[in-house]
Design a protein around this nucleic acid. Structure first.
Lengths: 210, 210
DNA sequence: AGACCCATGTAAGGGGTTACATGATTAC
DNA sequence: GTAATCATGTAACCCCTTACATGGGTCT
């Protein structure tokens, strides 16, 4: 039940039409909640029926005409209530991890190209987030509560992509490196894993305290 | 389209009944692909109809009786094909990040307790993964291709949970700390964020290379 | 007139979540 | 015999994804 609240949030920041919302979901909001235009139109209809939003007045005919929505007080209250409602984190459900596990069972498949491809995608995404951070969150924009909240959300995206690039890099290294200790030198030492950019820091054992 | 492949993987590792699969999904497989027993029974039916698995012979009546399934060659082929099929990473879709963003818009809500709660959950999950790593992946179990694959998958879970605990710790600190540079000292310095465990290292700027 | 974009929408199907139903086995 | 547990299943609902449909405007 998060999509309606994502839309309410976006509409509170700026009243918009369905397509404008779609574009904004492709940009800032979509960094942590993606949605297609079909989802958005359907949800806009529901929200309007529930009395949470309304279409701004316009004399145009309905079909093919832009329709702007704004949030009503009931919608704002619903959003405020949802923000404080506890909700457990979701279970991990990642196809790439699953495919690696399956590869261990069926054998034979070399997933290196796919891992490199994902690494590139995550690197690109990470670069995009960092550009946004530099543009929108200079130190003086990290003071107010609102700015800080927005910034930590972006930080979440940045650190998630950092995790993926690091894990993919380590995984590529692990899967292409020879068995160091048990077998002497069967394959030529592959060095750092493939991929255009530099190698991040060493794996780094997480603390065993918890 | 990943659930059937998750089931095929689990069945290749060991033929099982629906409930056994459910339990295994609550343990090792569920670390990267969760599923309920209803999903699993429905999917087992589909896989059997598709000729990918079959129920091991048994003279029992159908209702309430254990039914073990095994993978047929067609199922193994389907799984091997799926492993090499490219598939883009999913978009982020995280309710907690969304709620923080919404909190910036509606204001007033203090999410500190919720953040602490999530931090505890992720710490527990992380500790569980680390215990598995220590038990199942000593250095001598990281040699064969299969073991390495299984290990990097677990590493993914470990580092994901590490990311969450770090981000939550940083976020709690950021949201409870006073405005350092612009406002002198309005609130008593809160020190490290709440929560039982120690504070990990500083935020740590990721490299700006990409 | 045709191509192209903007904007809103419908339809079908897959997948996940929650609640409930039913039969068999075991323990008290 | 009643309760608890094991085991399999049904039903309803919601969400997401993909493909397609329709109408309006603009450019050439």
């Amino acid at each position: 039940m998060s999509l309606p609240h994502a839309i309410l949030t976006a509409l509170l920041e700026k009243p918009s039409s369905g397509l404008e919302l779609t574009r904004r979901f492709d940009k800032s909001i979509g960094y942590f909640w993606s949605a297609t235009h079909q989802q958005i139109y359907r949800e806009l209809g529901k929200l309007e029926q529930a009395g949470h939003i309304r279409a701004l007045p316009s004399e145009q005919p309905t079909r093919g005409q832009k329709k702007d929505y704004e949030v009503l007080p009931a919608g704002r209250e619903e959003l405020a209530a949802w923000v404080t409602r506890p909700e457990d984190p979701r279970q991990i459900r990642d196809p790439l991890l699953l495919r690696l596990r399956a590869a261990a069972v069926v054998g034979g498949a070399d997933m290196e190209a796919e891992l490199v491809r994902h690494l590139e995608l995550h690197r690109t995404q990470l670069a995009g987030y960092l550009a946004i951070e530099e543009r929108d969150f200079p130190p003086e924009r990290r003071v107010s509560r609102e700015d800080r909240l927005r910034h930590v959300v972006l930080r979440g995206g940045i650190e998630l992509e950092t995790f993926w690039t690091k894990w993919l890099t380590d995984t590529l290294f692990e899967l292409t490196a020879p068995a160091l200790d048990l077998a002497g030198e069967q394959t030529p030492a592959p060095g750092p894993p493939p991929g255009p950019a530099t190698h991040p820091d060493a794996p780094g054992e997480p603390s065993r305290d918890a």
